[in-house]
Amino acid sequence: MSHRFVIQRHHASTLHFDVRLEIDGVLVSWAVPKGPSTDPAQRRLAKRVDDHALDHIDVEGRLGTGTVIVWDTGTYEMRTEGTAAEALANGHLTVELHGQKLGGGYAFLRTGGDDWLMIKTKDDAADRHRDPAQDENTSVLTGRTNDDYA
């Protein structure tokens, strides 16, 4: 069964990427300071943050002191045994993304407290030479950048 995901590029006091997966009626969220990688050798810190309502999935623009763009969006499928809630509780969730910028498997591994790692799995979508978080900074919805909303 496919569910929705969104990755928002959020420039507030610091730049980070909010990775949000639709799980049990909310957007379960992680803040990823360096953004997602397509290189399986890269381990990205992912801080678990508050869940968001589903209507936040297409939020873009100026919010408070920062700006947000929908950097990537699409659907995902669970690759972990059991339910997503069980995987979150166990601290190991693996999904397959079907986005406009990202595809293939990604694992979320809890390392302690709210600290997790986001790791690209070794699959056909892995690419150690591509750095989309650094090089692809426009909204998939509007083509705008964070600077356009500043």
Rank of each mutant, 00 (worst) to 15 (best):
F5W: 11
R128Y: 02
Q100M: 12
A125L: 04
I23F: 05
L117R: 00
H11K: 10
M118I: 14
D58K: 14
D50T: 05
T83D: 06
V6Q: 01
K47L: 06
L15F: 06
L54M: 10
D147Q: 01
P132G: 12
T80H: 08
M1K: 13
G61E: 06
G104F: 04
V59A: 04
G74T: 14
A89W: 05
D123R: 11
K122S: 13
L97M: 13
G82K: 12
T121I: 13
H129R: 12
H92I: 03
L93Q: 00
P33A: 04
A87M: 06
E96V: 13
V26G: 01
G91H: 02
G103L: 07
T67L: 04
V59K: 09
R62D: 07
E136D: 15
I7E: 07
D123S: 11
V49W: 06
K120S: 06
V26A: 07
E136K: 14
E81A: 15
H56K: 06
D55R: 00
V68E: 02
D39Q: 00
G113C: 09
E86Y: 09
G112H: 01
A107R: 07
L63F: 13
P40D: 04
N90F: 00
T73F: 09
V19E: 00
I57N: 00
R128S: 05
D50C: 04
G61I: 14
K120P: 13
N137T: 15
A85Q: 12
H10S: 09
L93S: 02
T14G: 09
E136F: 13
T65H: 08
A125T: 08
